[in-house]
Measured scan of single mutants.
Amino acid sequence: SISSRVKSKRIQLGLNQAELAQKVGTTQQSIEQLENGKTKRPRFLPELASALGVSVDWLLN
Results as ranks from 00 to 15, higher is better:
residue 12 Q to Y: 09
residue 59 L to I: 13
residue 42 P to V: 12
residue 46 P to D: 12
residue 36 N to P: 01
residue 32 E to I: 13
residue 56 V to Y: 07
residue 13 L to Q: 07
residue 14 G to C: 07
residue 61 N to T: 11
residue 35 E to Q: 02
residue 9 K to T: 08
residue 51 A to M: 06
residue 33 Q to T: 14
residue 8 S to Q: 15
residue 24 V to W: 03
residue 34 L to G: 02
residue 47 E to C: 08
residue 10 R to A: 01
residue 25 G to Q: 06
residue 49 A to T: 04
residue 61 N to R: 10
residue 17 Q to S: 07
residue 29 Q to A: 13
residue 56 V to D: 04
residue 14 G to M: 07
residue 16 N to K: 09
residue 2 I to C: 08
residue 26 T to Q: 09
residue 24 V to K: 01
residue 30 S to G: 10
residue 38 K to H: 14
residue 15 L to S: 04
residue 48 L to H: 00
residue 5 R to Y: 05
residue 55 S to E: 08
residue 41 R to Y: 15
residue 18 A to F: 13
residue 33 Q to N: 15
residue 9 K to N: 03
residue 59 L to N: 00
residue 58 W to P: 01
residue 51 A to P: 00
residue 38 K to V: 13
residue 40 K to G: 11
residue 53 G to Q: 09
residue 48 L to I: 08
residue 61 N to Q: 12
residue 46 P to I: 13
residue 57 D to T: 11
residue 47 E to Q: 14
residue 32 E to D: 11
residue 17 Q to V: 13
residue 53 G to Y: 06
residue 54 V to A: 03
residue 17 Q to M: 11
residue 39 T to D: 13
residue 6 V to E: 02
residue 32 E to F: 08
residue 44 F to L: 06
residue 43 R to W: 15
residue 34 L to T: 03
residue 48 L to R: 00
residue 32 E to C: 09
residue 46 P to F: 12
residue 39 T to C: 15
residue 24 V to R: 00
residue 27 T to A: 07
residue 43 R to Y: 14
residue 29 Q to E: 14
residue 21 A to V: 00
residue 18 A to S: 11
residue 47 E to N: 09
residue 26 T to H: 04
residue 30 S to N: 13
residue 25 G to F: 05
residue 23 K to L: 15
residue 23 K to Y: 08
residue 13 L to V: 06
residue 43 R to G: 14
residue 49 A to L: 03
residue 58 W to Y: 09
residue 59 L to A: 00
residue 18 A to G: 09
residue 51 A to E: 05
residue 46 P to T: 13
residue 43 R to F: 12
residue 3 S to C: 10
residue 50 S to F: 14
residue 18 A to W: 14
residue 14 G to Y: 04
residue 2 I to V: 09
residue 10 R to Q: 01
residue 2 I to S: 04
residue 28 Q to I: 15
residue 2 I to P: 04
residue 4 S to D: 15
residue 43 R to K: 15
residue 36 N to H: 08
residue 5 R to H: 04
residue 12 Q to S: 13
residue 38 K to D: 13
residue 3 S to N: 07
residue 44 F to Y: 14
residue 19 E to Y: 04
residue 61 N to K: 09
residue 39 T to M: 15
residue 45 L to C: 03
residue 40 K to C: 11
residue 60 L to N: 08
residue 16 N to C: 07
residue 58 W to T: 03
residue 52 L to K: 00
residue 39 T to S: 10
residue 47 E to P: 04
residue 29 Q to L: 12
residue 46 P to N: 13
residue 42 P to S: 06
residue 20 L to P: 00
residue 54 V to N: 01
residue 39 T to F: 12
residue 30 S to I: 12
residue 33 Q to W: 14
residue 13 L to Y: 06
residue 50 S to W: 13
residue 14 G to V: 03
residue 32 E to S: 10
residue 61 N to E: 11
residue 34 L to V: 13
residue 50 S to V: 14
residue 31 I to Q: 00
residue 14 G to S: 07
residue 26 T to F: 04
residue 28 Q to V: 15
residue 30 S to A: 15
residue 29 Q to R: 13
residue 35 E to M: 03
residue 53 G to S: 07
residue 19 E to T: 08
residue 31 I to K: 14
residue 49 A to P: 00
residue 15 L to G: 01
residue 23 K to V: 10
residue 2 I to G: 03
residue 36 N to C: 09
